[in-house]
Amino acid sequence: MNITVKVDGTSYTDEVEPRTLLVYYLRETLGKTGTVVGCDTSNCGACTVLLDGRSVKSCNVLAVQADGHEVTTIEGLADGETLTPVQEAFRECHALQCGFCTPGMIMQATDLLATNPSPTEDEVRVGMEGNLCRCTGYHNIVKAVLQASGQPASSGGEQA
């Protein structure tokens, strides 16, 4: 079936099988391989993108469901070389190691801060619960989200 989706500012019209998941449409049809697949039960959040501005797990949405809607992926965040505050904070705080969960983390953090611009550490921790990371122990991810919100990192920090 034919769908039209705006992804990272560009409109695309493509023929897709109804069973095609949005994430595979992004990766394989559009070549947007920045968004990755980490699980098959919608637990890990690595595939998180924004659908009409809100975070969703693109492995848990059919491409046909996105017909007529707008998608933002990790590749659509930075304006040229200018990173978003969340991206900046992830680098600054060393909030990534292997980087596989990172697109999902950044997209979810972007959504979180859009609705709650000054979260507490607890709110960040609960707000990011849908994204799994195996490298960082989350410490620096939480720190990065707080930093991106313009707040100083809370207690507990490293190098006490």
Partner: peptide, 25 residues
Amino acid sequence: LAGGQSLLPVLRMRLNAPGIVIDIS
């Protein structure tokens, strides 16, 4: 299928194979 958040994981696991999915969203 409404939001699909329970149905899609089941389909991905292939624990069901419906002939048609009716999207009421």
